[in-house]
Design a protein around this nucleic acid. Sequence first.
DNA 1: CTCCTTAGTGAAAGCGGTTTCATTACCGTT
DNA 2: AACGGTAATGAAACCGCTTTCACTAAGGAG
Lengths: 379, 379
Amino acid sequence: MEGSTGRPVTMAHVALDAGVSIPTVSRVINGSAPVAPDTRLSVLRAIEHLGYHPNPMARGLSRGYSDTVLVILPHITEPSATLRLGGLIGVLRTSPYELHLVDLERPVTERVRQVGEIVLRNRPAGVVVISMSLDERDHQAFHDAGVPVVLVDSPSDEFPADTVDDVAGGEMATRHLIALGHRRIGFIGDREETTVGIPASADRRRGYQRAMAAARLEVRPDYVRTAPHGTETAAELAEQMLALTEPPSAIFAASDIQAFGVLTAARSARVRVPDQLSVIGFDDIFAASLMGLTTVRQPLEVSGRRAGLRLLQMLRHTIEEQMPELPPLELVVRNSTAPVLTAQEPLSTVSFEALDMATKVSSSLTSAVRQDQLVPRRK
Amino acid sequence: MEGSTGRPVTMAHVALDAGVSIPTVSRVINGSAPVAPDTRLSVLRAIEHLGYHPNPMARGLSRGYSDTVLVILPHITEPSATLRLGGLIGVLRTSPYELHLVDLERPVTERVRQVGEIVLRNRPAGVVVISMSLDERDHQAFHDAGVPVVLVDSPSDEFPADTVDDVAGGEMATRHLIALGHRRIGFIGDREETTVGIPASADRRRGYQRAMAAARLEVRPDYVRTAPHGTETAAELAEQMLALTEPPSAIFAASDIQAFGVLTAARSARVRVPDQLSVIGFDDIFAASLMGLTTVRQPLEVSGRRAGLRLLQMLRHTIEEQMPELPPLELVVRNSTAPVLTAQEPLSTVSFEALDMATKVSSSLTSAVRQDQLVPRRK
DNA sequence: CTCCTTAGTGAAAGCGGTTTCATTACCGTT
DNA sequence: AACGGTAATGAAACCGCTTTCACTAAGGAG
C-alpha cells in the first residue's frame, strides 16, 4: 500500500515506525533469524498499521531469484493446454508464487532462443513447460540457471514429467475400432515436423499402426494423413479421405479438436456418423462429451495439478494437498463409434438426443507413467 | 546468458569488455542519451559477444515499475475468458512486456484485498482486468499506483473498456424466440450475487424482460432462474423448469456454457430440441458451432486484442497493428431454435448431421460500444 | 577570441530489499 | 572469576540497473 503521500511504504518506514533497524524488519518478515518477541510484535504492528508489502523486485534482485513460476506453453487457447494450465493454477494459487505466462506461438525457430533467454532473464523460482519439447540448448539454459523445471506433456530425460503412453493410447483407440469390425481405418494427426516437438500425435499414430499390424490389417498410405493442428485442417484431410474411391469406415483423430473436423467433413460429405463412419478422438475435452464423441481420455487437469505440486515440492514447500494419482488412459465410448456396416437404428441422432450417453471402458492397456525424478534445487 | 563460469553476465561485464563505464552501457541499451557511434558499436559488440541480457528485476527496481502486464481474471478455464486472454496475448507478444497472470477463483471476499495488493506489489507497467467488476478500493488502489488499466468485459466509469450491450443482446435473443412464435420463454442465468460483479447475466436478463414486456408476454417467476455459473448447475435449473406443469417452449441461457446444460437437461427429460424446446445461448464459443447451438455472438477474441492494443497505446508504444473495430453483437441461428409447435421434420438430427449449418443474422439491434477514454500515464 | 551550448562520458547516489559481519548482553560452564 | 556460546541487533556491503550530476571537449554565436 502507500500513504496518501504517494510513495509506497518501504521497509525503512516500517523500521522507523517500529523503532528498529531495517534488517530486523527483514528478519521478522522472513523468519531468517531470531528476533525478540516484543520486537517482533512491534514490527508486525508497524507493518499492519502502515499497510506494508515487500517489493518483490527488490527482494528478487537481492536474493537472485523471484517468487515467480514461469509457465511456458504453445497456444493457450488450445483446450488441452487450458485445462492443464487450469490444474496448475489451482495449486499455484495456494502458494506464494506469482505466475508468469509465456505463450510461444508460431515461430518455432525463434522459440529456441526465446526459451533460454526468457528463463534466464526473469530468474523465476521454478519453470513449468507444457506441451513443448526442449532441445539441448534449452536443457543447458535451464541447467545453467539452476532452476527447477517440471514438464507436462513433454518428453525429457532430464526433468521430471508425467508422461502418458501415447502409443498405448493410439493402440487403445484403434483396437476399439477394430473390435467394432472396422477394417479400413484412417488416421488423422498433426503434421509431425510442425509440432513444437511434442511427439504425442506421432506416438498415437504409431499406436495405430501397431494395432493395425497386430490385427494384420493394412495401413494404406492414403489413410494416414497429417496437417497442422486444428479443426479446419483436419476437416480438409477428412474430406479428402472420404472422397477416396474406397474411403475408410472409421477414422482415428489424434485429438478431439481434429475429430471435430472429421465430424464436420462427414456432415458436408453427407456421411452419417456413426453408422457410415466411426470417429474416435483423443483427450476428452469438454466439447467431446457435449458432442457425444468417443475418445481416449487423458488426465489433462490432473497432470497440471501434479506438475504444480511437484514443483512446490522441489521448492521445498510443505504442501497440504496430497499428490493425486495420475489416472490411466481410458476409453470413453460415446456415440460416434459403432459396429461397421451394421444396419442398426440410423444413429444420426447424436448430440442433442444422445448427449453424454457415455460408457466408460477402462482398457486393458494401461498407461505408462514416468516416475518422478527430483532435480536439485538451486545453489 | 552466462559464462560457463556460472554467474550471469551483468552490465559491469559488458562495460569492462567494451572499455566504457556502466552508465554508458545503459544508455546504449535504452537510448536514453546520446552515445558516440563507435562507442555504441563496441558496446553492442560486447553485448552480443557476451550474450548479455539485462536483469528485469534490477531494471524494474531502479525504474520503479516492471516491464510486466498484469492480467487479472476469474477462472481461466472458462472458454470466454480463455478466448479474450488469447486475443490479449496475441498482441502482447509483439511487445516487450511479460505477462503476469492472476486467476482469482472463488473467494470473492478475499479478492477485494488481493486485487489492490497484487497490483501495488508488482508495480506492473499496465493492468488488464477481464470479466471482473472493480469496487471503490480497487479503483483507489489502481489510481494510487498510477498504473494504466484497461478493462475487458467489466464496467467502469474510470477506466477505458469495451463494453457490449448485454441488455440489447438479451433482447436480441429473446426477440428471436418470440419471432419464432414462442410465448412461454424461460431464462437461465448466473446467480447474481455470486458473480464476481459482472452484470452481464443480469443485463441479459433485463434484455429478456424488456423484450417480453414489449411483446406483452408474461415473465413468470418460475421461468426465471439463476445459479452459479456452469453447465451442470444450469442443467439442474433446466430440469426443474422442464418439470413444471406448464414448461416453457423456449429457454434463453445467459451463456453458451449454460445453454449446454439446458440441452443436457432436455435430453434426460426426453424433450427434443428444437422441436419441443428451443434453446438459445450467448457468446458463440467454439463448442456452440460444433453443437449447432443458436446463440448471440459477442466478439471475445477481438475484445482481448483491443484491450492489449489500447494498453500498448497508453504505454506510449508505437503499434503496428491497427485497432480492429469491435464487431457488434450478432444473432447466429443454428439448429437449436425452431418455430414453436410446428410439426416439422423432427429436428433431433442436429450436431453430427447439421454441424455448423448456421445462418448469421445481423440484428437490427446494434450493440453499443463504450468509446475509448484515455487515462493519464504514470508520473 | 571569449562565452554559451551541446555532445559524450564517468562517478556516485539511489531503488528496496537480503546477508554478512561485528558488537553487546546474557547465559551456563569449569 | 574468566570463558565460550548464543540471542538480539545494527552497520555496511551488495544485488544490477537507472539517473542525476559534474566535467571535458568541441562547436557556434557574438
